[in-house]
Design a protein around this nucleic acid. Structure first.
Lengths: 199, 199
DNA sequence: AGCTAAAAGCTAATGGCGATAGCTTCACCT
DNA sequence: AGGTGAAGCTATCGCCATTAGCTTTTAGCT
């Protein structure tokens, strides 16, 4: 078997990485093969030697972005627990999403039903939510509910903020703090058991 | 000044309404002038007699959808208050979003900076959130925070659910109930002064 | 009833984008 | 020195948004 690596410069990983950067600048939805080709110094059709389609490029960016976000969240939670950890990953989540709008949009892309690699990237990022919520004493179905709740709230906020969905007045960071505090208080509150079985 | 209304059938409103229906079927992002033209029984260029561009069509669908959603939420809250009202609009919000995915995506579109009509449609829908939260004794900036919090959480959940962002197991309706209950508990909880410091 | 202005529709055409086919060039290995 | 295969390029196709310019229809006036 040969190991031919003709020309220099490009590779699938390099194209995807450049695509992620470009998506942050022009928006994930407005990313085009032509724009990316110009960025990496090639003509449009040449990109197809590295990625099979625009959709495959988006998938690659999505997987990379899910991994990056997962790492960022994990780092933020190191050495913290309980409400403190929730606040830490909430802040990290919002900062990263605002700094990397294109990548963030890519993380929301749902994997195809049979796409193991993509699914795993998302699951690993999600695991951080579970780990952080472990300190709240939630089990089984409740833990799933809480992880979905936390993720939904954080995602909804930064998604609306990123889309310019909030009217001007009242500082947005203050509202975000309110959201996180409300959630923490809500998760800590006693509540009737809907349908758990353990205990 | 004459008032000529030649031909029959189409009008700006009819085109926008048909566009909203079609968006629910094919997705807001995948709505094309060609698809809509076929749906209303004309050739593509003829649509431009009624809407100035695809973007203008999207804007029109967005405004219509914001009004519809606002009405749906207001109806759901009639005769209810406090936690009961929050649960009612939360359920109505999710149901409507899942039944009308294209329209729902359109409601998230941020208005252009100088677009009064679009901004007003969004504000009127948002007003329902404020009204419902009035029962929680939140004032001024806190009321803004709470409205953003509630909207973010509801939007985040249905947005992720609609995108297929939740893994299969554990019933999604149960998780939604958990989210709403957590939020209600969090909003009712006592909490420290607004301007704390963290990060 | 007939005339007319303008809206509403159509065909043709342009430019951008994703994608494919097929040719050329270059790096590496023997 | 030559052969191989990846990487790049040009040419081309089809789809979509949009515009130009012609034709058809109809409201409203006389």
């Amino acid at each position: 078997m040969r190991t031919p690596v003709p020309r220099a410069g490009l590779s699938r990983a390099a194209v995807v990485a450049a695509g992620a950067e470009l998506a942050d600048e022009v928006g994930f939805a407005d990313l085009t093969m032509g724009l990316l080709a110009a960025r990496v110094g090639v003509k449009t059709p040449s990109l197809y030697k590295h990625v099979v389609s625009l959709d495959a490029l988006r998938r690659g960016i999505g997987i990379q972005a899910k991994q990056e976000l997962g790492n960022v969240l994990a780092r933020a939670a190191v050495g913290r627990s309980g409400a403190d950890a929730v606040r830490a990953i909430a802040d990290a989540h919002r900062s990263w999403a605002l700094e990397h709008p294109g990548r963030y949009a890519a993380t929301v892309r749902a994997p195809a039903a049979d796409d193991e690699e993509d699914r795993r990237a998302g699951d690993e990022a999600l695991q951080v939510f579970f780990d952080v919520l472990a300190g709240f004493g939630l089990r089984d179905a409740r833990a799933v509910d809480a992880a979905r709740t936390l993720r939904s709230a954080l995602h909804g906020f930064v998604s609306l903020e990123g889309a310019g969905g909030f009217g001007l007045p009242r500082d947005v960071t203050g509202s975000y703090r309110f959201l996180v505090d409300s959630l923490v208080a809500g998760l800590q509150a006693e509540r009737p058991a809907p349908e758990s079985r353990s205990r």
